[in-house]
Design a protein around this nucleic acid. Sequence first.
DNA 1: CGATTAACTTTGAATTACTCAAAATTGTGT
DNA 2: ACACAATTTTGAGTAATTCAAAGTTAATCG
Lengths: 158, 158
Amino acid sequence: MSDVAVQEPDWAATLHANGLKATQPRLAVLRTLSRHPHSSAERIVELAQPRPATLSVQSVYNVLADLGSRRLVRSLELPHQPGLYELDHGDNHHHAVCTRCGAVADVPCAVGDSPCLTPVDNHGILVEIADVLYRGLCRNCRDLPDTTENTNQTGVTV
Amino acid sequence: MSDVAVQEPDWAATLHANGLKATQPRLAVLRTLSRHPHSSAERIVELAQPRPATLSVQSVYNVLADLGSRRLVRSLELPHQPGLYELDHGDNHHHAVCTRCGAVADVPCAVGDSPCLTPVDNHGILVEIADVLYRGLCRNCRDLPDTTENTNQTGVTV
DNA sequence: CGATTAACTTTGAATTACTCAAAATTGTGT
DNA sequence: ACACAATTTTGAGTAATTCAAAGTTAATCG
């Protein structure tokens, strides 16, 4: 029997197609984001180990910048938290974040087709993109009484 | 003839009504935000001078935190920029930001009534708030050719 | 297939936007 | 005016990120 492995893109080929060398740090970052979307730079370093055995935070920042400029990766900035990164699948999806545990979920960009897709002229600014951040409580946190400690608790109120 | 002054709220009374002392730094921050919405803490220090003659950045942060907890002021976090502050008028408006010059404009929360007001259950997260950030080009930047320097240029791409 | 070299990563220092804590000051009720 | 708690300031500290120079590596050429 063959292993039932999750099909992953050929990252080396993707990098080459974008005029980038297929280096270990870049492959590690792409593999990690593929398995763990919405990860911070520090988290990527943790998750990427031990392949390669060492990977500096600065390299991750460099890699994320390079991949971001090629539209392979995009970032998500939540208030009072380090930036989170995910593979850029070309869709313009938004995010829902739990204000209690910090869990992040993708939300398709289709709430009656607006406001994401309709360019609006607001006070002279011709809108091309709408970034929407939904805030609320995830199922798990909703079910817990106010006083209960949450296992997912990050200490951050987003 | 009397001066044609813009009518400003009685900030001292507002502070007292919220159980806060009407101190010079607090009055200066409120006056400044009233005249210059979407200002950062550093900018508030610049704009508030010379009344009082000295005002520390830390005081501004303290004041903003106090006023924020009383819902007199709210903040707006743009990626890769210091937090911006504005008076909280109780409406739940959003913001449009020019990706070229960084200009910020208020946008009423009413794009077909959604997505701001309709709670949606997305991937288990019961949405209570939707923060929308519109990005685009302001009239001024749209009229300028790509190569032209923008007078409002802050160096920041938001 | 091994050398060359431009691209890339790492190391270490610097910066920005804040936060924290203790000391000095000020607003307000008496 | 006085007193005292509330507030501001001063100074140090922190987290996330950026900058710059030296070292390393991937891919191309011989």
